[in-house]
C-alpha cells in the first residue's frame, strides 16, 4: 500500500506483465484523473466475469476512475456480484464473510490510523443490497452508530442475482421474481433515511446516468469519511438478467428509474458542507 509499492524496480520493467507496466506508466497511480478522460488512460479495473451490459460493472468502473488516491485505498466487498469486478482491480481488495464488511472495515480503518497516523488511508466498502441491508444489516448500522470513518457504497440491484433471483429487502413492492412468484409483499427499505438517522455525515442516492456526477459523489463521500465520519452512497445498479432488461436498454432503464424513484439526492451535515465549500473554492483562489 502506497506509491512505493506500486512502482516497478528499475531494470525489472521487461519482466513485468504488459498490463501492469501500462498501469504504472499510463494509469491513475500518483496522479488525479478526470472521469471524462476514461478511455484515454489505463484503468485500475481489468477484465472481469460480470455479465454483458451489467450496470453494476459500469458503476464500479467509474468508481475506480473517481478514487482520489487509489494507491492508498483498500476496498472491502462481500459475496454478491460486485466482488467479481472489485477483485480484478489493482487496488487491495478484502473479501469479507457475508454481511461482515462494515465490521471488517471498522477494524481496518482503526488499525490504519494507528499504523499511519500522518497519512490518509481510505477504506471503502462496496457491497450489494443483500450484504449491507439484509444480511449485514446489524454490522452496517453499528458501524454508523460508532461513527467509523469510512465510506459505504451500496450497489443496489434489488435482487439476489447470484443465487437465482430471491427478493431482497431492497426489491420494490409488488415485483415478481423467479424465487418470489407471488410478488414482493413489503415496501423497499429506505436506506438513505436509515443512514441519516444512524449518524452518517454524507448520504447520497443516485442512478448511474451521469459519470461526472458519480465521480463527484464518490470523491465527496471518500473525502468526507477521511475527516468527519461514516458516509453512504445508495446507487441503483440494475440486474439485467433477473429483471429481464435487454442489454442495450440498460441505460434507458437507469434513466427511467432516475425519473421515478432514483433521482439524485445528496445530504450532508453543516460541517461537511463548509468543508466542501472551502475545498472547492481553493483552486479558483489559486488561479486568481
Amino acid at each position: 500500500m502506497g506509491l512505493e509499492y506500486v512502482r516497478i524496480s528499475p531494470g525489472f520493467e521487461k519482466y513485468m506483465p504488459k498490463d501492469y507496466v501500462d498501469l504504472v506508466q499510463y494509469g491513475q497511480f500518483g496522479r488525479e484523473v478526470d472521469v471524462q478522460q476514461l478511455g484515454q488512460f489505463k484503468e485500475l479495473v481489468e477484465e472481469h466475469p460480470m455479465c454483458a451490459g451489467c450496470f453494476m460493472a459500469y458503476f464500479i468502473r467509474v468508481f475506480y476512475a473517481a478514487l482520489p488516491k487509489p494507491e492508498d485505498t483498500i476496498v472491502i466487498g462481500t459475496a454478491g456480484c460486485a466482488r467479481l469486478a472489485l477483485s480484478q482491480a489493482a487496488v487491495p481488495f478484502i473479501y469479507g464473510n457475508y454481511g461482515d464488511t462494515n465490521a471488517v472495515a471498522s477494524g481496518l480503518k482503526r488499525a490504519l490510523s494507528i499504523r499511519f497516523p500522518d497519512k490518509d488511508k481510505d477504506v471503502v466498502v462496496i457491497a450489494g443490497d443483500g450484504g449491507l441491508i439484509d444480511i449485514g444489516f446489524g454490522m452496517t448500522m453499528h458501524s454508523w452508530f460508532r461513527r467509523e470513518k469510512f465510506t459505504t457504497i451500496m450497489v443496489d440491484n434489488e435482487v439476489y442475482g447470484n443465487t437465482g433471483g430471491q427478493e431482497s429487502g431492497m426489491s420494490p413492492k409488488g415485483v415478481q421474481l423467479k424465487m418470489a412468484p407471488k410478488g414482493k409483499q413489503f415496501d423497499k427499505i429506505n436506506a438513505v433515511e436509515l443512514a441519516k438517522t444512524a449518524g452518517c455525515v454524507y448520504v447520497a442516492k443516485l442512478a448511474p446516468t451521469n459519470p461526472k456526477r458519480i465521480a463527484k459523489t464518490v470523491r465527496r463521500a471518500i473525502l468526507a469519511a477521511r475527516h468527519f465520519g461514516p458516509t453512504f452512497i445508495h446507487a441503483y445498479t440494475s440486474c439485467n438478467i433477473e429483471y429481464s432488461i435487454p442489454t442495450e436498454k440498460v441505460l434507458e432503464d437507469a434513466r427511467k428509474r432516475e425519473k421515478q424513484d432514483f433521482g439524485f439526492y445528496e445530504w450532508m451535515t453543516e460541517e461537511v458542507k463548509e468543508f466542501f465549500e472551502e475545498l472547492e473554492r481553493k483552486p479558483e483562489e489559486v488561479k486568481a
Binding site: 476514461l38 478511455g39 484515454q40 460480470m50 459519470p211
Partner: peptide
C-alpha cells in the same frame, strides 16, 4: 464526442484515440 466511451461497462475496452479523435 466520447459519450460511448463514458458509458461502456467494460474497462479498457471502448477506447478513445487522442489524435484521431475517434473511439
Amino acid at each position: 464526442c466520447k459519450q460511448c466511451v463514458l458509458f461502456c461497462p467494460e474497462p479498457n475496452t471502448l477506447m478513445y484515440h487522442d489524435s484521431k479523435h475517434v473511439a
